[in-house]
Amino acid sequence: MARTAPPPLTRGVGWTRLPILLAGLAACVLLFIVPFLVVVATSWTRTSFVAFPPQGFSLSWYRDVLHDPEWTDSFKVSLRVSAIATLIAVVFGTLGALALSRLRSRAARSWLRTLFIIPMAIPPVAYAVGMYSVNLKVSAFQEHLTLLVLGEALLAVPYVFVVVSTGLSQADPALRPAAATLGAPWPMIVLLVDLPLILPQILVGAVFAFAVIFDEVVLSVFLAPIGVKTLPLQMLNASQEALSPQLTAASTLISLLVMVLLGLVSLVSGRRAARARAIARKAATA
C-alpha cells in the first residue's frame, strides 16, 4: 500500500510558482518574524525605556526581571492559575466532546456544539465584568484565585472541545459498537477505547488551553485578588507605568520558553510518526 507522492504543482501554477512562493515567504517574515525580532531587540537596549533601534547592548534587563519578585511572583501565579484552569478545561472540554460523539440527533448535536463554543464568541470584557459583579457579591471568592481560575477555564473549554471532538469524529465510528458487542460496559469503553484514542488530541487541546489562559489579561484585571498579579497583568502594568525594557525582556523569555516547549512536543510527535511510518513500510514489504 505504497502511497505515491502527489504530482508536483509546477505544471498547474506555471511560471507564477516562484513569485508566489517568494511573496508568501516575505509575508511570513514580515508578519511573524519581524515583530518578534523587534521585541527581542528592544530588550537589550541600555536605555531605561523601550527604544527601537536599541542603543548599545546589555543583558541587564534580563537579570533585572529574573531577580525582581514582582515578575517572578506573577510568573508563578500565572503558572498556577493556568495549570489548574487547563486541567478543568480539559476535563469539561473532553466530556463535552464525548457527549457530542454519542448524540444521534442532528439538532441536539448542533445545540451542544453551539453551547460549548459560546465562550469564544462572548467579548471577554463583558464576560469579565459579569464575573466581577459576582465576585463583589460573594465575599468568599474575593480573597482567592477561585473565580479567576474558573473564569479562565471556561474561556479555554471551547479550544479543548473543538480539538478533541475533531479527533473523535475521525475515529472509526464502529469502534464503540464493536466494544459493546464484545461485552464491554460503557465505563470500560470510555477508559479502554475512547480515551486512549483521543489522548493526542487531549494533549494538543491542553497546550492550546494553557497558551490561551497564560496570555489572558482581561479576566485578571477584574478578578485577581488585591495584591496578586498574573504575568499578563504585570506586563500590562509595566507597559502603562514606565515602559521599561523589563517588559520586552520578560516577553522574550516567555517566548523562548514556549518555543522550547513546542519544539519538544513536535520532536516527540515527529518521532512517533516516523516510528509508525517505519512499521507501515515494514508491513508493506513483508
Partner: peptide, 16 residues
C-alpha cells in the same frame, strides 16, 4: 449488545 453474546465482524473490522 454486550449481553447478547454475539460475535460481530464489522465492515471496517473496527480493530482498536
Amino acid at each position: 449488545p454486550r449481553k447478547r453474546n454475539v460475535g460481530v465482524v464489522f465492515q471496517s473490522y473496527a480493530l482498536f
